[in-house]
Design a protein around this nucleic acid. Structure first.
Length: 833
RNA sequence: GCGGGCGUGGCGGAAUUGGUAAACGCGCCAGAUUUAGGAUCUGGUACCUCACGGUUUGGGGGUUCGAGUCCCUCCGCCCGCACCA
């Protein structure tokens, strides 16, 4: 059969159909086989896939195909993160319905993914907006409720005025909405929360399990986000009032130096403290000023520290002194208790504040240098707070102690009178999962005037989202206005009641989808034990760094919460994580406004799936950013054509060899080709296994093809089997990257079976042993010559040859040879002086 | 400020972990083929130098027979966190 011109579209269609009809990517739970679960972050069905998706999914597909060739039972699923606000906005704009828009996009994007030839088990596809999916998370929620992991509370929340909904802390970036960049406001609201803080310690500790499997920076980001700090909670009595204020401090050792207190403007005690103040108006104005300031300005590092005296004092529990209580703009209600014991001598912020408002300072930690000289630190001499370790001074019975053990000693002392206790504080807050949005999974609770909050009984699930709802032009959720949705009867007393109209944060869906893939069509259970026990954890997860906190933290929490509610048995969802770099164009992110978007469809039409995949995997290692280059993809396409023509040219002499079947070279040329064949397998295997360095895998295959071009005419008549074997190897190694063309050329070699079903080849160490090797000769570390020597030639022999080289003699002449270093099969370094 | 990463040709990027720096590709140059262009094949291409040779992995220093790789220091860029008490 003649190959003719390389026409990617036709052969790609052909093989995609063959793969689909044969079901070769469909996998079953089979405990007799070793499993490998590779997963890429599923997309939001926004319309079309973009180059970032192509990169993400091409990386995953090579991993999946490679592992399958290595004999693993590979689970490689795909689905749709299908709930979310863009569907509502699109529905308003196009006067359609979010569901219709979403399902259309899914159809379009599924078609694109199929045209890229990815090896998904499409039978396992899930869309999170389907009741068959979200009914299970409604069930999870009921269980969480039962276990006390879900609760409702009224508190100030992040409100995005553009999205018309609250946001979790993780979803606010520098005061802006993560999705639309609007400025986030604070709003008191009654909301549903999940107790992720109950898992703060486990989420932190288990990062240790992920060490080595996850990028260090993601682990660091999660550690920072959880923000565990050790310290103490100390209680200060308010003077002349039957009230006390508790502070969190990491420096209880400095308590004797606390000369005033600072509280947040939002602190619940502020109103009481200032009620009788003479300058009440002034104080209120100050508070209002702070509260009205937007989060960015308030969080800015150059914000001038300001405060105002409340008119009240509290009592330092160890010195017994009255210390003034200030309201300060730099104290945050969201961290610790919203109140800080100020120690100006040993905290830089308090130092600046004290200088500004002429508040007293007392040094209580003596620097070791002074301690040794027998002197003590005077706060008046400081031009900045002293924050390093030292020895206790002006601290009563604790004087002379090192400050570190004094922390505990002071708290224990206070504990006797109930005024202090060791405490751990976290930055992490509970996860607000209520969203005032329509296109999401309904939260399954009912509000009854008599019974209060009543969970929807399990047998009434799912609470269906009415898909016929008409979206409102103002962008607000239509659910609260839909009587047929809202009105219901109380499951407890039967009286008329109202349904919750908030829906789940869409991160709820993505927190467990990877588990549902293991058992996607189970109608009896959310997650069947047998498939889950077999497939979980995900062996390799691949996605963008933007979810370093958000999705990856929520998913880790969900795994643990579902474990504790009896749904699953594993502790961590993702054993290994690869965060791929961004795809850039002209040095920047692709965006419609810049007009530098590369459309995958255009690439498919012009070059085909194989060239697109090849380029994107070749241009940079997966973790680095990738600069899109039109010439680059041209080059990838050129290489595939070159491979194609190689097989076309040799077709008459090719036999259906599998890799490495050529074992008995007669000529030096064939011998060298055989060496290259085996060396390419070695390099390709090593580079895939080591950090998925596909770029160098491809480079190695290119070298093999280049060598084939060099030797093909010399071997085609004499040792064509050497060519067939090497070509079989090139095709097999390249097949995970460019599967269609490799299948086609494999077939052209005369193979009756499919390349996709071939094993990953193994190399023979013996084929890598050369009879002769090139040694480099250096004189004083500079290369002065090279020579051929038998493999593993003895050191003294190599030395003798090296010294005898003409060019080497030139540099050693008249000089004493001090030392000769011989590294067998590599180099000889002659040291002269 | 704290934490993490990075710095190699005109460009994207290699370098078996201390042993010939610049593999592979893009771009560029030359030759072959072609009526021509394109495509293809072959060769060349770090820099300086006519050459011999010299220089080069952000700068400087160190360890070593030998450093892109290890150590110190400085500079620059990127990312994350940041009045976190």
């Amino acid at each position: 059969m003649a190959l003719g011109k390389y026409a990617p579209e036709a052969i790609e269609r052909k093989w995609q159909k063959i793969w689909q009809d044969s079901g070769c990517f469909e996998v079953e739970t089979d405990p007799s086989k070793p499993k490998y679960y590779v997963l890429e972050m599923f997309p939001y069905p926004s319309g079309k896939i973009h180059m970032g998706h192509v990169r993400n999914y091409s990386i995953g597909d090579v991993v999946a195909r490679f592992k399958a060739m290595q004999g693993f039972n590979v689970l490689h699923p795909m689905g749709w993160d299908a709930f979310g606000l863009p569907a509502e906005n699109a529905a308003i704009k196009h006067e359609t319905h979010p569901a219709k828009w979403t399902y259309q996009n899914i159809a379009e994007m599924r078609d694109q993914l199929k045209r890229l030839g990815y090896s998904y088990d499409w039978r396992r596809e899930i869309a999170t907006c389907r009741p068959e999916y979200y009914k299970w998370e409604q069930k999870f929620f009921l269980k969480f409720l039962e276990k006390g992991l879900a609760y409702r509370k009224n508190s100030p929340q992040n409100w995005c005025p553009t999205c018309n909904t609250v946001l979790a802390n993780e979803q606010v970036e520098e005061g802006l909405c993560w999705r639309c960049d609007s400025e986030v406001e604070q709003k008191d609201m009654e909301q549903w929360f999940l107790r992720i803080t109950d898992y703060a310690d486990e989420l932190l500790d288990d990062l240790g399990i992920l060490e080595g499997g996850w990028p260090e920076r993601v682990l660091t980001m999660q550690r920072n986000w959880i923000g565990k700090s050790y310290g103490a909670e100390l209680t200060f009595q308010v003077k002349d009032m039957d009230e006390s204020i508790t502070v969190f401090t990491t420096r209880p050792d400095t308590l004797f130096g606390s000369t005033f207190m600072s509280v947040a403007a939002e602190h619940p005690m502020v109103e009481k403290l200032t009620a009788d103040a003479d300058n009440k108006d002034e104080i209120d104005k100050f508070i209002k000023n702070i509260r009205d300031m937007d989060r960015i300005k308030r969080g800015a590092d150059d914000l001038e520290k300001e405060g105002i005296f409340t008119g009240r004092y509290c009592v330092n529990p160890v010195t017994g002194k009255d210390i003034p209580i200030y309201i300060a703009n730099f104290v945050l209600m969201g961290y610790g208790t919203g109140a800080v014991m100020a120690v100006p001598a040993h905290d830089q912020r308090d130092f600046e504040f004290a200088r500004k408002y002429k508040l007293p300072m007392q040094a209580v930690i003596n620097p070791p240098a002074l301690h040794e000289k027998g002197e003590t630190l005077d706060a008046a001499d400081l031009d900045a707070a002293y924050t390093d370790p030292g020895y206790m001074i002006h601290s009563g019975q604790f004087d002379g102690m090192e400050n570190e053990p004094a922390k505990k000693a002071i708290v224990e002392h206070l504990d006797k009178s109930g005024k202090g206790v060791m405490a751990v504080n976290y930055r992490l807050r509970d996860w607000n999962v209520s969203r005032q949005r329509f296109w999401g999974a309904p939260i399954p609770v009912i509000y009854c005037d008599k019974c209060g909050v009543v969970p929807v009984p399990e047998e009434d699930l799912p609470v269906l989202l009415p898909e016929n709802a008409q979206v409102r032009p103002d962008g607000k959720s239509p659910l609260p206005d839909m009587a047929e949705f809202v009105n219901c009867t109380c499951p407890q007393c039967g009286a008329a009641a109202r349904r919750e109209t908030d829906t789940f944060d869409t991160f709820f869906e993505s927190s467990w989808y990877y588990m549902r893939y293991c058992d996607p069509r189970n109608e009896e259970q959310a997650l069947g034990n047998q498939p889950l026990d077999y497939w979980m954890n995900v062996d390799q997860y691949i996605g963008g760094i933007e979810h370093a906190i958000l999705h990856l933290l929520y998913s880790r929490f969900f795994t643990k919460a579902l474990r504790d509610t009896g749904f699953v048995r594993n502790d961590e969802p993702f054993a290994n994580l690869l965060t791929q770099g961004m795809v850039l164009k002209d040095g920047g992110k692709m965006s419609k406004s810049k007009g530098n978007v590369v459309d995958p469809n255009a690439m498919l039409a012009k070059y085909g799936a194989d060239a697109t995949r090849l380029f994107i995997l070749f241009a940079a290692p997966p973790v680095k950013e990738l600069e899109w280059s039109d010439q680059g993809i041209d080059g990838a396409f050129r290489f595939l054509n070159r491979l194609w023509r190689l097989v076309e040219d040799l077709e008459p002499v090719l036999t259906p060899e599998v890799p490495t079947t050529f074992t008995d070279p007669a000529s030096d040329t064939a011998k060298e080709l055989r060496f290259k064949e085996h060396d390419t397998i070695r390099r390709a295997t090593r580079d895939i296994e080591n950090e998925f360095q596909f770029n160098t895998v491809i480079a190695a295959i290119m070298e093999l093809v280049n060598e084939l071009y060099q030797v093909k005419d010399g071997l085609r008549e004499t040792e064509p089997k050497a060519l067939s074997s090497a070509i079989a190897t090139a095709l097999t190694l390249l097949s995970p990257v460019a599967p269609h063309i490799c299948e086609e050329l494999w077939e052209a070699m005369g193979h009756a079976d499919r390349l996709t079903d071939q094993p990953w080849p193994a190399f023979d160490e013996k084929a890598l042993v050369k009879d002769e090797v090139t040694l480099v000769v250096q004189v004083n570390g500079k290369v002065r010559g090279k020579f051929q020597a038998p493999n593993n030639a003895p050191k003294d022999e190599a030395e003798k040859i090296a010294l005898s080289l003409e060019n080497v003699a030139k540099y050693t002449e008249g000089k004493a040879v001090r030392k000769v270093i011989v590294i067998p099969n590599r180099l000889v370094n002659i040291v002269v002086g």
